[in-house]
Design a binder for these strands. Structure first.
Lengths: 220, 220
DNA sequence: CGAAATATTGATCCAAATCAACGGCTGTGG
DNA sequence: CCACAGCCGTTGATTTGGATCAATATTTCG
């Protein structure tokens, strides 16, 4: 169970201890809300299958997508600062999760230096990803941003042992646009264009990367 | 010493223990480089006075500013993922630092749950700030971004017990533009414009917020 | 003091937003 | 299982915010 939910390098002993505190969560359906803004942080969640988006609402009540969560991701770190979740998290499709009670995790991490390091490492990784994305969005064209987005998804799927070559975009074009700071129309146009150039084969939500080399080149 | 370098709520006992591992670092002069990309992560640094910028170099070798560090900030978290710093960090002016050896910090955080929580809290806060900034940059105009930047600086100075009303921009206009994804010219124009509208009084690097209420309104 | 770096201001251009119209899924209820 | 409604996606025309180009002023620092 712990292996499924936290697929990281831990010793058998550590894995066993973790197993005692990790619970299977009921499956979410598309559009189900897992976390509401302001909710107390009682659990971290690990995605077993499916996907979710996290977003906050700006002063005018419109959605700002902060993150997409894929299998293997941990959800909830942003709330550690004050024990409150700082965003909404919603399923994009049928999604299976594990939940990890914060309190037990805290106790356990006192005993297991490996787990403690692992947690810091995951957070540090998220922090780095987030800051890198900032750079990407600030200094790149629409095409570069989208190419980069597809590459990043591909890499994340690969790390989880899924196909890095072809996958399903579980989020809408509007979601992608929102996340990248581009309009829906621009996302659509660039996908068409990348398909015409033979970089991608796009059919509705399914994407196949037909020329990974060129996609990488376009992404930077 | 620990109080100076890590101004957070720790018990006297905890502070005393921290004191034993924190070292004063030699002062940096303007343009001195504190951290090079790829360097092994041996220390975290706490800013006592002055300021720094962190940046990475993109594939074409041009600077992408990731962060500005003000007094009270901790530097180095992005390297926890693999024990290597993932960016360059350079002083913007004469700057005083403390250094905190990673190894001792790790040992100490095993003993002190408060310190462990504190570290997680700081990282979580950074993560949240970074994701919020992402939203800000993605969905706001140049004026909103800059207003937001000034507000954020003001708030950070206030938290550290410095003046939130008037302060010095230790970074160049080019640095601000780079950070916000805007050109130097745009930064300059908008500062002029905000001054004409009576929101700011700008004189070279000195900024005074003359109408905080209106600045806040412009920032969102 | 003088050179180089930094900042301002104006003119022009362009990438992506917005506006508009339509075609194609998808999911729901009869 | 089909029909229809509503969201989702695509494509085209027009507009625009901010980049870029260009020239000059100001500050900083050796």
């Amino acid at each position: 169970m712990a292996t499924l939910c936290l697929p990281y390098q831990l010793s058998p002993e550590q894995t066993e201890k973790l197993d005692t505190i990790i619970q299977r969560h009921r499956p979410l359906q598309k559009r189900d809300v897992l976390i509401e803004n302001g909710e107390p942080l009682k659990f971290l969640y690990a995605v077993r299958s499916g996907s979710l988006k996290s977003y906050s609402l700006d002063s005018h009540g419109s959605e700002q997508i902060i993150d997409f969560h894929l299998p293997g991701d941990l959800i909830g770190f942003d709330g550690l600062i004050d024990g409150q979740h700082r965003s909404f998290t919603q399923a994009l499709e049928t999604t299976m999760l594990c939940e990890i009670p914060m309190q037990s995790l805290d106790q356990l991490s006192a005993e297991l230096p490996g787990l403690r390091k692992q947690l810091l490492r995951v957070m540090s990784g998220e922090l780095h990803a987030s800051k890198t994305l900032l750079g990407t969005l600030n200094h790149h064209t629409a095409q570069q941003r989208l190419a980069n987005f597809i590459m990043t998804l591909s890499n994340r799927f690969q790390q989880r042992g899924l196909s890095s070559r072809s996958f399903r975009l579980s989020m809408t074009r509007a979601d992608i646009g929102n996340y990248l700071g581009l309009s829906v129309e621009t996302i659509s146009r660039i996908l068409t264009q990348l398909q015409q150039e033979g970089v991608l084969a796009v059919q509705n939500k399914l994407v196949e990367i037909t020329d990974p080399e060129r996609l990488r080149a376009l992404a930077s």
